[in-house]
Computed example of a mutant assay.
Amino acid sequence: MLRIAVQSKGRLYDETMALLEEAGIILNKSKRVLLLAAADFPVEVLFLRDDDIPQSVANGVADVGIVGENEYIEKGQEAKLIKRLGFSKCRLSLAIPKDSSYEGLSWFEGKTIATSYPNILKNYLKVNQVNASLHVISGSVEIAPGIGLADAIFDIVSSGSTLVSNQLKEVAIVMKSEALLIANQGLSDEKKAILDELLFRFAAIETAVGKKYVLLNAPENKLDEITELLPGMKSPTVTPLATKGWVSIQSVIDEKHFWEIIGKLKSIGAEGILAIPIEKMIL
Rank of each mutant, 00 (worst) to 15 (best):
E197N: 13
I82N: 06
K192M: 09
L223M: 10
A62T: 06
L81F: 12
D50I: 05
I253M: 07
A79L: 05
M233A: 15
R91A: 15
L199R: 07
E260L: 05
I268Y: 08
E178D: 14
G146T: 05
V33R: 14
K83A: 14
G104I: 07
E225S: 10
D51L: 02
F258Y: 11
E78Q: 13
L105Y: 08
N28E: 15
D224F: 07
E103A: 10
S100C: 13
L94G: 00
V214T: 14
L229Y: 01
S267D: 14
I194N: 04
V61T: 15
A208C: 06
E260I: 01
S235I: 12
T239W: 04
S248E: 13
V43P: 00
K244T: 14
A62E: 03
A95N: 04
V61P: 02
S188A: 06
V214G: 00
Y72N: 02
A38V: 13
I143Q: 08
S177R: 07
L199M: 14
G104Y: 12
G65W: 03
L20E: 10
M17T: 13
I4W: 06
D52Q: 13
S177H: 07
V130P: 15
I261F: 02
S251K: 01
F258T: 04
L215G: 07
M1T: 14
N166P: 10
I143D: 07
S133V: 08
P231G: 08
A38E: 12
V171N: 06
P219H: 06
L36R: 14
F87E: 05
K264D: 04
F200V: 06
M17I: 15
L241Q: 13
P118I: 09
P231E: 07
D99C: 02
G148R: 00
V164C: 00
G110F: 12
V67A: 08
W107M: 04
K191N: 09
M233P: 03
I253C: 02
L181G: 00
V171M: 05
E279Q: 10
S140L: 11
S100D: 15
N131A: 09
A38L: 10
W246E: 10
Q77H: 04
L181F: 05
L181Y: 05
A193N: 12
V57R: 00
V238Y: 03
I26K: 15
I113Q: 01
I66L: 08
G263S: 05
K176D: 09
S188M: 04
L215S: 12
E78G: 09
K89V: 12
G139L: 01
